[in-house]
């Protein structure tokens, strides 16, 4: 097992190299260039140097005057030592901007994920046990709605109900207008109440697929011969479902959950924008459209690391829940 993990880690490093190479190439070749936009603005000032002069000067300053491949290796040699440079758009070190915005996104995503698991797995199991019953159809339709309707639809409906009609929460923003006057607990409650609607939105859109997945797997397991054996032993229905069947359903679910690890940090661009929460999704998007190479590179590589780590964790968990894939 240890050898396997080490081997996987080694492969991950190689993968990471090529992933960062590809992302760097794409970022450098994008038509939106931060430097060009800067040069254009500066050259429009009265009495300024010409656009070409500015461009040359800025390219020199931002280290874009060298080719793609040398540029990549320069970036990489810095990145290996932990130096990801300063963000061009935000004018602060990349890692500082990142730590400022990541936690909002992480809190949103992790609470939403816990809620998704808590709602969708029991519902999926229930739907599978009562296949083709009214509750099964109701759950399936609900799941289908969650999968197929877009985020902004749910966000808007939730805003209409809870902000406009009921007036429980603010329409958007991370803090209320009297945030500064509140004590520590009041501040916490203020931010929490602003997070309710985004979390609800994220939960609704995520529940459907996980529920469908649980239902399908549970149905397959419930028709297995060993479930009949468990019943023939005289076990109670609860133990048959919650122990014998559930342990087998867990195998595919674990893969999905392991794979969703990067999702916790990726941020939810649409939801964050709709609720104007300055999370990583929103910030990452801003950095990307304005051609901020250092920030985008860091964000992308961070996600790539998490993806590789997520699959590795999923594989290890797989061995934990399924004795058949354990490597001696």
């Amino acid at each position: 097992m240890r050898r396997y993990v080490l081997k996987r880690l080694f492969i991950s490093v190689i993968l990471l190299f090529f992933v960062s190479l590809i992302i760097y190439m794409i970022m450098r070749s994008l038509p939106t260039s931060y430097v060009e936009a800067q040069a254009r603005t500066l050259s429009m000032r009265p009495g300024a140097k010409s656009y070409t002069d500015w461009l040359l000067q800025l390219q020199q300053a931002y280290g874009l005057n060298i080719g793609l491949v040398p540029g990549f290796f320069k970036w990489m040699s810095n990145a290996i030592t932990g130096n990801f440079g300063d963000s061009w758009v935000f004018n602060v070190p990349v890692t500082q901007k990142f730590t400022d915005v990541i936690w909002d996104s992480f809190i949103l995503a992790s609470i939403a994920m816990v809620l998704q698991i808590m709602i969708s797995i029991p519902l999926g199991i229930h739907a599978a046990r009562k296949q083709y019953s009214r509750s099964d159809y109701a759950i399936t339709v609900f799941a289908l709605l969650g999968i197929s309707l877009p985020t902004f639809f749910f966000a808007t409906v939730l805003k209409l109900i809870f902000s406009v009609w009921l007036g429980w929460f603010d329409l958007y923003g991370k803090v209320g207008r009297d945030y500064m006057q509140l004590d520590a607990f009041g501040k916490f409650m203020d931010v929490s109440s602003h997070f309710v609607l985004p979390i609800m939105t994220l939960t609704i859109i995520g529940v459907g697929s996980l529920m469908r997945y649980t239902r399908t797997n549970m149905l397959e397991v419930l028709n297995a011969d060993f479930i009949r054996t468990a019943r023939a032993k005289g076990l109670s229905e609860r133990r048959v479902i919650n122990y014998h069947a559930f342990r087998n359903t867990l195998i595919p679910i674990v893969t999905i959950l392991g794979g969703s690890l990067p999702g916790l940090f990726a941020g939810a661009l649409i939801t964050e924008t709709l609720f104007q929460i300055p999370g990583i999704g929103y910030t990452g998007y801003q950095a990307m459209v304005s051609g901020d190479i250092p920030f985008t590179m860091f964000y992308m590589i961070f996600l790539a690391v998490l993806t590789l780590l997520g699959t590795l964790i999923a594989d290890i968990l797989y061995a934990v829940v399924d004795p058949r894939v354990r490597i001696k």
């Binding site: 297995a224 011969d225 060993f226 009949r228 054996t229 468990a230 019943r231 023939a232 032993k233 005289g234 076990l235 109670s236 229905e237 014998h244 342990r247 087998n248 195998i251 829940v321 399924d322 004795p323 058949r324």
Partner: peptide, 29 residues
């Protein structure tokens, strides 16, 4: 009733199934 039947299954009447390959739960010893 089923809950009374659970005391009989495996205890007074037990059953051996046709498919030994799939009749044991793969995740338990």
């Amino acid at each position: 009733p089923t809950e009374k039947m659970q005391k009989i299954r495996g205890n007074e009447i037990s059953m051996i199934f046709q498919e030994p390959m799939t009749s044991l739960n793969p995740v338990f010893k």
